[in-house]
Design a protein around this nucleic acid. Structure first.
Length: 275
DNA sequence: ACTATTTCCTGGATGC
DNA sequence: TGCATCCAGGAAATAG
């Protein structure tokens, strides 16, 4: 399930592989579910445009598109916004590569390659936007300073785990990294966000940033069917201390890791180390 | 203004 | 082996 580090890895791969290339034609499948804009609008917006830059906003992939040959302009003409949901992939490949099931869009590039959006479970989303109009809300976890981070949780009665997952507060943190960050600072996922001390929130801010940075360095976590733009796997899953380790010993105290459901999400923690 | 719950969707794992 | 059932999860929608 792509969260911030996985999306960042994919974005870097796309930036190096397709930035500067031009979209010569677009094919869109019949499924409506993944489309946030109409198929006609997506085709019309993408066709003929050059991909000036690929960047990330939270868990969204944003491709800046320009019409002119010269890419010196600062403001793109349009943006192509992609959310991978749980199982979404952005594949860059040669046209001879067989189109797999659940391919919802394929963009043929001037270089001859194809950029394909594939998503089995269809929680992913495709949209086009006018530059400046797309704002997923929330703050970037790697850019927010500790004071602003603390303010996000003031007065919130919801469990800290749920608050960390709320994209309108913090954008990009998902289930894996929320659990991992909480484990690193010894906070139980069920603690009310408003009940966490200033010092602990400062520590949590540091842990969220550390865990995301470390994961980006390792190319993200490959669990489920996540792979990067080249199909390569990440390796941060080898660093997980609690996520997916129910019943296994805590790496610090050997107490079995517990799994509980909070807000419909499985949450993992050490009952001894996390209070 | 919040918060909690439900819904979408399909592949993989599990159980009989 | 095969079939049914459960489960995973991001975020939008709904209900309270």
């Amino acid at each position: 399930m792509p969260e911030l580090p996985e999306v960042e890895t994919i974005v870097r791969g796309l930036q190096s592989r397709v930035a500067g290339d031009r979209i010569s034609s677009v094919w869109i499948g019949s499924r409506k579910q993944p489309l946030k804009s109409s198929a006609a609008k997506i085709v019309a917006t993408l066709t003929g445009k050059k991909i000036a830059r690929v960047h990330r906003m939270g868990k969204h992939i944003v491709l800046d598109l320009v019409t002119s040959a010269a890419s010196s302009k600062k403001i793109p003409d349009a943006q192509w916004v992609v959310h991978l949901g749980m199982t979404g992939r952005m594949l860059v490949c040669e046209p001879e590569i067989e189109t797999v099931k659940h391919t919802h869009l394929s963009a043929t590039l001037a270089s001859g390659r194809e950029l394909r959006f594939i998503d089995a479970r269809m929680f992913g989303k495709l949209a086009v936007a006018v530059p400046g109009n797309f704002d997923p809300g929330g703050v970037e976890p790697l850019e927010v300073d500790p004071a602003v981070f603390q303010e996000l949780f003031r007065g919130r009665k919801t469990p800290i785990k749920s608050a960390l997952l709320n994209q309108k507060l913090l954008r990009g943190v998902g289930n894996i990294y929320a659990d991992e960050a909480l484990a690193r600072v010894g906070i139980r996922p069920r603690r009310k966000a408003s009940a966490i001390s200033r010092e602990d929130l400062t520590k949590l801010h540091g842990a969220v940033q550390a865990v995301l940075r470390e994961a980006i360095k390792l190319g993200g976590s490959s669990v489920s069917d996540y792979v990067g733009a080249d199909g390569e796997e990440g390796f941060f899953q080898l660093q997980h201390r609690v996520y997916g380790r129910e019943g296994e010993p805590c790496l610090v105290c050997a107490t079995p890791i517990q799994r509980v459901v909070i807000g419909g999400r499985s949450s993992h923690f050490c009952p001894k180390c996390q209070k």
